[in-house]
Amino acid sequence: MLDDDEEVMPEYDRDALGATFAVGNGKGGVGKTTVVSNVAGLAAADGARVLIVDINGQGNVGRDLGYRDSPEDDRGKGLVDALVHGKPLQPIANVRPNLDVVPGGEYVSELPDMLRLAFPKQKFRQVLALAISLAPMARQYDAVFIDSAPENPPLEQLALAAARWMIAPTKSDAGSIKDGLGDIARQFAVVQRKVNSSLGLLGVVLFASGSRSSQIRRRARDKIGEVLGSDFYMFESTIRHAEAVGVDARDRGLLVHELEVAAANNPAFWELRAGDSDKPVISKTSSSVAEDFAQLAREIFTRVAELEGRA
């Protein structure tokens, strides 16, 4: 999307976006949406006013938060109208207490083409469309999280151009790191150089890692260091692999800390053995994964405070 150095930069309130986080990786299936939903949900549960912007054609934030296919789920149509036609962003209010969401979905996939038609020969205006739409409302929130789309450089650039910080989840395999992380690092460099000099890399988080796989984690850290030139940006927090927890959470539209609470109401062993309960059994591992996300959320906001000199 960005290949023109002659264009005049459009005006907008960049300072309003100082608490905006783009969560991205060029590869799908590495935990971007899960990190967005759970970290944002924990911050909201702790009393912060939080907004999620889902700029992903899959719209899976809606599955994590349980509003998918509800009357409020416009599948990204409102987001497209705001960015292309200048209409105000209209989040779904209070998906959780203190947590609002601008839904994504199938309409978002049309955004790059529609922006090119709406703003021909205005490459900066195209890539800054989300920043321009988001800035007027961003000060209402303590934090804004953008779930970016994988394998779609124009949508990745839209998210990065609106952000102050990038968080990059990755799995430990070479495809997730060398291809996925390498791709988002390239988009990061282009956006930072051409339209958003305030963009910073906050950190890389290892997702779906075996809790006892210390050797695999060390190798992953080495590979991440090769891609980024340093392993300085690695978060100490990791999100452990727990397939049952991921399935339970998305099937029920619950965040992992909410799933932990629901697991406390599991039927007793004697009820299951006697066949006296038809209540679903939720994985007890949800407690451990909930603590992983709590640690990551604390590390994210602590690192921002340190980098901004507020620690």
Rank of each mutant, 00 (worst) to 15 (best):
L155G: 04
F269C: 04
V127Y: 09
I52E: 13
I132T: 00
R63D: 15
A220W: 09
A143T: 10
M137I: 11
A263I: 03
I184D: 13
D15P: 07
P91N: 06
S109A: 10
F269D: 15
R49N: 13
R218G: 15
S214Y: 11
K27C: 07
A263H: 09
E11N: 05
G210F: 09
N94V: 02
I146H: 02
A263L: 08
I167A: 00
L79S: 05
G105R: 04
R252A: 15
Y141F: 12
G210S: 07
R139T: 08
K27S: 08
F269R: 11
Y107M: 09
D54V: 01
P280R: 01
Q192R: 12
A174I: 12
E299Q: 06
V80Q: 12
L83N: 11
D69E: 15
I55C: 11
R218C: 14
Y107S: 13
T302R: 11
Q295A: 14
M114C: 03
I216K: 08
R298I: 01
Y67D: 11
Y233I: 05
A22W: 07
N196D: 05
V108M: 01
S277M: 01
A163W: 10
I239W: 00
L199V: 09
K178R: 15
A40V: 03
D113N: 03
V281D: 13
S283W: 07
N196T: 00
D222H: 08
V261F: 04
S277Y: 01
P153W: 00
I92V: 04
R240N: 12
G41A: 03
H85E: 15
D142E: 12
